[in-house]
Write a protein that binds this DNA or RNA. Structure first.
Lengths: 108, 108
DNA sequence: CTCCTGTGCTACATTTTTAGTAGCAATATG
DNA sequence: CATATTGCTACTAAAAATGTAGCACAGGAG
């Protein structure tokens, strides 16, 4: 998987340009990334509670996404356990909050 | 893959609840989905131009995403060729436009 | 008509990613 | 001690993506 050799090899899959927006779109375009941020919007969850919230997604990919989101500075692991959004993460979450309203009127 | 039996069987991968927001997050959380919408924001592109814009992503997955996005009503194939956003698609794109500004200030 | 080019789209083998299940060390509580 | 929780990892099988090649169709030029 993501080779952790030395100082974090970043393939930036899905973008060879490295432009911030492309890197961000790639990160958020991985399975469960958006969902994780969404589920954490109301407050921190333990890893297992998060797993339950995400329809029992496999812990393999969940841990991978959490690591990526932590390295990106969107999510943090509080002392005493529990994953929560950072200030930056909350900011990002606010960005696509309107998606909820959009989805509700889209289902028709 | 997605069984096309009768009237479109939708496994809604990544969400067993079927809530609109979950379905949407799942769809947008697939590789290249967000990127495609992003690249179409300024106007229609031919399939090959879109492929070039998306860092030469493989046509296999690109076609798959385009089909999904078309079924969702976000993208359409204009007569005479060229993929473009629908009114709904443009609306959706507007939703996460602030992401660009966010990404720019996030890279630090 | 033939040749050429571009459109949307597909086949196929290889690689990568995810799913699903099990289990670990560490910590706490009884 | 047993029990139960935390975050996290190993492993194999399944699914999805990559990368390359090519198809049928349509339009234009010769």
């Amino acid at each position: 998987m993501a080779k952790q050799a030395g100082t974090k090899t970043r393939p930036v899959r899905g973008s060879r340009t490295g432009r911030p927006i492309m890197v961000l779109l790639d990160l958020l375009g991985r399975r469960w990334s958006l969902r994780i941020l969404w589920e954490l919007r109301d407050g921190p969850l333990t890893s297992r509670a998060l797993r339950t919230a995400c329809d029992e997604a496999s812990p393999t990919v969940l841990q991978a996404r959490l690591t990526e989101l932590r390295e990106a500075g969107f999510v943090e692991l509080g002392e005493g356990g529990g994953y929560g959004l950072t200030a930056l993460g909350r900011d990002l979450c606010e960005t696509f909050m309107p998606l909820h309203r959009f989805a509700e009127q889209w289902k028709k």
